[in-house]
Design a protein around this nucleic acid. Structure first.
Lengths: 160, 160
DNA sequence: TTGATAATGAAAATCATTTTCAATAAATAG
DNA sequence: CTATTTATTGAAAATGATTTTCATTATCAA
């Protein structure tokens, strides 16, 4: 249906070339579950095609992020994580639970309806009040997961 | 009222010493409007007390973050920003509008009531469903601010 | 006052990301 | 299909934020 993938035209339309390296990188993103590090993407892409270099991974991720094909997250780990933007209804649904101790990231999608309604309402108000064209949003809850709550290494500064 | 600041006891209670460097750093955070970089904090603290080193700024910010006295933000600039957690009702209200072009950060606090109600509801559900003890949350809207929307440098990948 | 040890700054080490640059490969014109 | 233009490449060096090391110093509790 799509000769060399749906992105081919999207790229060439903008004078951007579709190269083998980029193809490998997109393949990796396609096959991944999400939240990949640039280094992780490099590893897998380099496996698919040893010609792929880390620099190109960074450069391609930049382009894809600009294009809106890829999402770039920062979870406070000192490095970014990337995820292919789905084509489903959930494309802009980036809601996470992050454990402050073990750094586990839970990508939740319950409560979609409620949240969407709320977010859209607030978004409209903010757009008007601050003259902002809002493109997307992140909602993140930080906390301690069940496992870590039971675990031992508890230097609990929080309470007093 | 508080001999050497309210943190003194908070520190020493945990076997953590209150030093001049730390005092300077906390003073800077106190007097700041918010969203300071480690380097920016270092500059000001070092001005207050030339004995303060950058390393200590990082170390102190870590501790303060652990303690919950300070908030650490990542806005995708490749460096963290820190802000003193207020003692007001808004202590956990970290809601931002970030311009994807000029990187300007607007800290909005409209719609507090609405948001709080919503967030608390969802938080309760998530806590139960995922066995998570939620400590705080971030809500961030990315977009393009009015100024940038009118500006010239518009390579617009977004719309096909 | 003093002793145990937490905290220090400077310099070196890391780690993610960016830049430089000469060589290469993709699109397009012919 | 070939030549030509020029975007793209990878390797290596550069950058920038943050962390670690380590010998010295300062804090606090007794």
């Amino acid at each position: 249906m799509h000769g060399r993938g749906w992105w081919h035209r999207r790229f060439t339309n903008h004078g951007i070339r579709m190269t083998q390296s980029r193809e490998a990188i997109i393949d990796v993103l396609n096959g991944a579950d999400g939240h990949l590090t640039a280094a992780e993407i490099y590893l897998k892409a380099h496996e698919l095609n040893p010609a792929v270099g880390l620099t190109t991974v960074y450069r391609t991720l930049d382009i894809l992020t600009e294009m809106g094909v890829v999402y770039k997250f920062e979870f406070g780990e000192g490095k970014a994580r990337f995820e292919l933007t789905g084509e489903s209804t959930d494309r802009d649904h980036h809601h996470h639970l992050v454990c402050m101790k073990c750094k586990r990231i839970i990508d939740y999608s319950d409560m979609l309806g409620e949240e969407r309604a709320f977010i859209e309402k607030i978004q409209a108000k903010l757009a008007e009040r601050y003259d902002f064209e809002i493109r997307d949003h992140f909602l993140r809850f930080n906390g301690i997961c069940g496992q870590c709550r039971n675990g031992s290494n508890n230097i609990n500064f929080k309470e007093d």
